[in-house]
């Protein structure tokens, strides 16, 4: 029996829709999971708050805690001026968080394990930072690349480094999330495959299969942590980049 650890990332066209300039647009399993993310996130944040209870129930508490968590994170990184980005950061966090968590359920598809998805999200953050930075600060935005307190004769060296690090942000931002999700799911799949392979070898195989079984249990717990932490990291990095656009003078 052979189990391909990559197969879980395979996109399948469910309903072909259109073909624009040689590019096929189809409703895919990935698209279906994106809609599931929207539905579940809305169920938590809209469905659970319908009653607007003064004393919240469990789900309303969860929704309120998520709101306050993201709001506090954003306020701590950008100050009160950044609060107008709360809907964006909140949507980003909820989208990535739900994508990561839904992907942990066996047989599901992990939207954030697709490089193109994390790249689009990271580029969205990048362009918002660039456009808002220039719109709000004008050319003072380029002060971002000139750290304060650096001697002038160092600037020819420092400025290109700063520009490079700024331009590579979307790469590190997107690859970090993508690689974490990909590696975690491959590891889980490989250890799960060991269980099935070993169980095929009779009694001793059954005994041996308990080892990867406990490994999978432990890794699943770790992956839940990774899913939440990576969503948080993605959101807080977006906050930190936004802070550069709001306060470019370091």
């Amino acid at each position: 029996m052979h189990i391909d650890p990559i197969e879980q990332f395979q996109i399948k066209n469910l309903v072909p829709l259109a073909n624009i300039g040689g590019h096929e647009i189809a409703f895919t399993n990935s698209a279906a999971y994106m809609f599931i993310i929207v539905i579940l996130a809305s169920a938590l944040l809209i469905g659970a708050t319908v009653r607007r209870a003064l004393i919240p129930g469990r789900m309303q508490s969860l929704a309120e805690m998520t709101y306050e968590f993201v709001a506090t994170t954003l306020r701590n990184s950008t100050g009160p001026e950044g609060m107008k980005f709360l809907p964006f950061i909140f949507t980003l966090f909820m989208f990535v968080l739900f994508a990561n968590l839904i992907g942990l359920i066996p047989y599901t598809f992990t939207v954030t394990s697709q490089l193109i998805v994390t790249v689009i999200l990271a580029l969205l953050v990048f362009f918002i930072v660039v456009i808002y930075g220039f719109w709000k600060n004008g050319w003072r935005f380029v002060k971002l690349f000139v750290p304060k307190g650096v001697p002038v004769y160092f600037l020819p060296m420092i400025v290109p480094i700063e520009v490079m690090s700024f331009l590579t942000r979307p790469v590190s931002h997107s690859v970090r999330l993508f690689a974490n999700m990909l590696a975690g799911h491959i590891t889980l799949q490989v250890f799960a495959a060991f269980i099935i392979m070993l169980a095929g070898y009779g009694f001793l195989g059954w005994l041996g299969a308990t080892l990867p079984f406990f490994m999978v249990v432990a890794l699943s717990a770790l992956e839940v942590l990774v899913a939440v932490v990576q969503a948080y990291v993605f959101a807080i990095l977006a906050c930190i980049y936004l802070n550069d656009a709001i306060h470019p003078g370091h």
Binding site: I11, N13, I20, H23, E24, I25, A26, F27, T28, S30, A31, M34, F35, I37, V38, A41, S42, P87, F88, T91, M94, F95, V111, Q114, I116, V117, I120, L121, L124
Partner: peptide, 15 residues
């Protein structure tokens, strides 16, 4: 292209 279209749609919807 499919990913881009659906991600844009669902992200805007969620936003």
């Amino acid at each position: 292209p499919s990913q881009f279209v659906w991600l844009t749609l669902t992200f805007v919807l969620l936003y």
